[in-house]
Design a protein around this nucleic acid. Structure first.
Lengths: 112, 112
DNA sequence: CCATTATGCAACCATATAGTTGCATGTCAA
DNA sequence: TTGACATGCAACTATATGGTTGCATAATGG
């Protein structure tokens, strides 16, 4: 989970995912094209994406083809989105309740 | 976007969100309770969550009440999940196509 | 007023991260 | 074999990060 979020928390890596989204099966050198960074820099980012399982690879001779792997995001993030959506619904009543409750001048701030 | 993912890429911060998910309107000291970290450590994490707009605050006298804010995740992450889901569908045909396509060039050492 | 409580600010430290360069390894084609 | 190409590995640097401690500020309550 940490790995996935961490991997996505970087513009360069999101850009690489964008590229793989447009066209899968690109090699390192393909992905380096027009990228403002050394080849090794890109390789490191791809390594992080692989480790997060957001990119899967397929060796073919001496070239390593990269593919976007949609599974972990679907699995892991979906849970969080669902959670936050529950919270969103709850927030409509909850937030107001809690603010009002906490606004009672003195203590008694613990909400029921 | 970077801020949101970065904020979520830390176990302590996700734990704080969990706590606010369970019960909104908690103060810094409330959230420090049982947390294996100094108050300032927690305050920093909350600052990052605020900056990412995942937590909104409401001052009440000298205490700062924290609430989970579901909006940015709903907006921003949803787009990514959607994108990855498109990719998931595409992957079924795309992946196979691209592998085969890339294999055309030369030798036959790899089977389809 | 004074003590207590809730928070903020700043400096500091250890480690992680993003990026670099240089060299090694392995594969392809002639 | 030889050279060119695709990638990996390792060392190094600057900065960001997660965490700490100490002190300052501001509101609360007796």
């Amino acid at each position: 989970m940490t790995d996935v979020f961490h991997a996505l928390a970087d513009e360069s890596r999101r850009l690489l995912l964008d590229r793989l989204f447009e066209k899968g099966g690109q090699s390192l050198t393909d992905l380096c094209e027009g990228f403002p960074m050394s080849r090794q820099g890109v390789a490191k980012h791809l390594g992080i994406l692989e480790k997060a399982n957001l990119v899967s690879v397929h060796w073919q001779g001496r070239t390593k083809l990269h593919y976007l792997n949609p599974v972990p995001l679907g699995d892991i993030v979906h849970r969080w989105v669902g959670k936050f959506e529950d919270a969103r619904i709850a927030a409509l009543t909850d937030f107001k309740d809690q603010v009002e409750d906490n606004q009672k001048p003195k203590q008694e701030k613990r909400r029921a």
